[in-house]
Simulated assay, not measured.
Amino acid sequence: MSLPPRALLACVFAAVIACPAAAAELASLDWLLGSWQRTGLPADRSGVEQWRRQGDALEGEGRSYRDGALRFQERLRIVAEGAQLYYVADVAGNPAPVRFRLVAQGGQSAVFENPQHDFPQRIAYQRNGKQLTATVSAGERVQVFQFTLSAPLSD
């Protein structure tokens, strides 16, 4: 099935308009950039989450340590697809990266959701100065991670 020329032109125009909007929305998440050190952990545990701009995406990595040994690692990306932003988490044990759609955004906050995923279904970030709170949840199950900015990063 082919589209009439006007409909095709309208689709191309909508795509061209949507891409800069998604790119601007992605740039509005630059407050997440940097190296964030976990706080409030027992003495034998530590963690870090790092975010940097990589081309047309934000790339992140989260790591948790116990007694200096790596216990958990995840690769993270925030990407624009069409007019929508997605948080993509690649975690060992999952058969494929899991995508969460941006559903809310404030000055220094963002909420991503995937109601079909087991846990988490919701990932929320809130920055307050040099403090960052990441809350992951599904139903009644909630985990809160506190971070302090240890090293700002830029492009």
Rank of each mutant, 00 (worst) to 15 (best):
113 E>D: 11
7 A>D: 13
9 L>P: 00
18 A>I: 03
127 R>I: 11
47 G>A: 05
133 T>M: 14
56 D>P: 12
22 A>F: 00
120 P>Q: 08
114 N>C: 14
148 T>G: 07
102 L>N: 00
139 G>C: 04
119 F>A: 05
117 H>F: 15
134 A>P: 02
66 R>S: 10
94 N>K: 15
36 W>A: 06
83 A>P: 03
155 D>R: 11
108 Q>R: 07
117 H>E: 10
44 D>F: 03
79 V>I: 13
131 Q>C: 13
90 D>N: 12
28 S>D: 08
54 Q>W: 12
26 L>Y: 03
74 E>Q: 10
37 Q>D: 13
53 R>F: 12
77 R>N: 06
27 A>E: 11
58 L>Y: 08
132 L>V: 02
85 L>Q: 08
2 S>K: 15
36 W>D: 06
103 V>F: 07
51 W>L: 06
40 G>E: 10
39 T>I: 15
43 A>Y: 06
32 L>T: 03
34 G>A: 05
99 R>W: 09
22 A>E: 01
146 Q>M: 15
7 A>C: 03
13 F>C: 08
98 V>H: 02
67 D>V: 05
38 R>E: 13
115 P>H: 10
16 V>C: 07
110 A>D: 02
32 L>S: 08
146 Q>R: 14
72 F>I: 04
134 A>G: 05
57 A>C: 04
124 A>E: 12
94 N>V: 09
15 A>Y: 01
95 P>A: 13
19 C>V: 02
43 A>F: 02
69 A>S: 11
130 K>M: 13
6 R>N: 09
126 Q>V: 15
139 G>R: 09
19 C>K: 00
104 A>R: 02
65 Y>R: 09
48 V>W: 03
69 A>D: 14
138 A>D: 06
89 A>I: 04
16 V>L: 07
10 A>Q: 06
33 L>S: 06
30 D>L: 07
47 G>Y: 04
142 V>I: 11
64 S>P: 09
62 G>H: 06
85 L>Y: 01
10 A>T: 01
44 D>L: 05
26 L>P: 06
95 P>L: 14
85 L>H: 00
19 C>D: 01
26 L>R: 02
29 L>P: 03
110 A>C: 07
148 T>V: 12
